[in-house]
Amino acid sequence: MTKLAQWLWALALLGSAWAALTMGALGLDLPSPCREVLWPLPAYLLVSAGCYALGTVGYRVATFHDCEDAARELQSQIQEARADLARRGLRF
């Protein structure tokens, strides 16, 4: 099964469960506070997923390592390499 199919299946499953409960298709008599939470639930989930995504990406951007040392090390090795290669007769 492709990743797309997995997503569609999961969404269809959750979506039909939600629809069945809100429409009362199962004949369950849910107390009214439950029903009031239930019907905007997809919107809540969507918003919290979005917040989670933004929070995660934001945190990861903020903690992305800047490899200053690696860049400095590379620069000094480049000098060393140029000198050594020139000594061995390389024409740049």
Binding site: A53, V57, F64, C67
Partner: peptide, 29 residues
Amino acid sequence: YKGNGGVYGWDLKRKIISRGANFITQVLL
């Protein structure tokens, strides 16, 4: 993206694109 890994020479925009693309990819694939 892990441990001591990192980048040098990227501005904020580049980092956001990179991290964002990586996040979406992780979620989808």
